[in-house]
Amino acid sequence: MLILLDVVTTAAILFIVSAGLLAIFGVLKIINFAHGAWLTVGAYCAVVAARLGLNPWAALPLAFAVGAALGTVAEWLIIRPLYRRPLDAILATWGLGIVIGQLITLAFGRDVQITPNLLGGTVALFGLDYSLYRLFAVLAAVLIGGSCAALLEGTRLGLKARAVIMNEALARALGIDTARVRLATFAIGAGLSALAGVLLTPLTSVDPNMGVAWLIGAFMLVMVAGGSFAALAVACLVFGAVQVLVSTFVSPILGSISVAVLAAVVLRISPRGFARA
């Protein structure tokens, strides 16, 4: 039972961390290697919110707004010139990540920052004391996944984004301003990444390098998921389960690299990953 809870909550955390990266990759076909930096920016929004004496929950909208605003600028300055050079986009966003990390260091210092917990304590569930926050993470993942799906399925922007995903040239021919769709998607994806940064703060310390630890895992999950949130959810559950099971029954060290290794193998066998459905 404990293992099952661990699997579900681990999958939820992986989903939260990867959602922003997936939104961008799905529509733009660009890997945002500055994703880690956006997670960090989000977490520092929680630090700032705490310093301003705001309610810890207020950091969530703040981080989304800051992340989306930064995303807009980054799309305009860095991503837009590189749409036709996806490998170069990886490098440029990695460089952007270095720059953001150093700017955060200059502003806040290297020190580990501590933020107030969003939710503390444990609840009794199935006869176990389980972390309340981890259970909340499942709810947060469902909310994020649900609102992304609603956005894609139920709004004009979502319709346009799906058109761009399927066939960009055709979408442009139909009079869709694809540049704006890309800009909006990148901003939303960046906002989601920053939001995820806040949601991570109760689990981790906040420091200028915190995002890098999550970047590779999120990147591999998104590669396996292709462009779909449903596939991402499946990938998170499968890989989360593998990570927890390997950690529990073999070794946590192997568990921590299992996502990356397994994703590489899955992609070798089936280059389209879980997105074939």
């Binding site: 661990d6 004391d129 981890r134 990570q243 950690s247 529990t248 946590p252 060290i253 690299i257």
Partner: peptide, 20 residues
């Protein structure tokens, strides 16, 4: 006796083992 890589940030299973 459990270890996580130096940059590891997810202690979930280690803590579950500890509790068990």
């Amino acid at each position: 006796e459990e270890y996580l890589p130096m940059d590891g940030s997810d202690w979930t299973s280690v803590i579950s083992k500890l509790k068990t």
